[in-house]
């Protein structure tokens, strides 16, 4: 195991092919990291959506319950 490159400049230069090597590594890095973050955030954003969804659901249930309740009481009054 020996380091292939002697100097940091060599490492960046890649024997004259630095542009191509680093471009493709950059694409891969951005692509893979971007997708990783995106798929990780997906759960979080879905959870937020679901919180809203459940709030609506419980609101509606409560409204329905209230509605039924007032109906019941009106029947009693009659």
């Amino acid at each position: 195991m020996t380091l292939y490159f002697q100097t940091f400049q060599d490492f960046i230069d890649m024997g004259g092919h630095g542009f191509f090597v680093w471009t493709s590594y950059a694409f891969c890095f951005v692509g893979l990291l971007g997708y990783f973050i995106y798929s990780n955030n997906l759960s979080q954003s879905n959870k937020k959506e679901l919180v809203k969804f459940y709030r609506k659901l419980t609101d509606r249930e409560q409204r329905l319950a209230k509605h039924n309740h007032t109906n019941d009481s009106s029947e009693v009054n009659e």
Partner: peptide, 24 residues
């Protein structure tokens, strides 16, 4: 891939792209 491996004498350092290309 980037630091320790030797290079192909024909392709030079571009061979290092294959380390991310072939698995992809």
């Amino acid at each position: 891939g980037l630091l320790f491996s030797q290079v192909d004498y024909q392709q030079g350092n571009t061979v290092r792209i294959l380390y991310i290309h072939v698995p992809a």
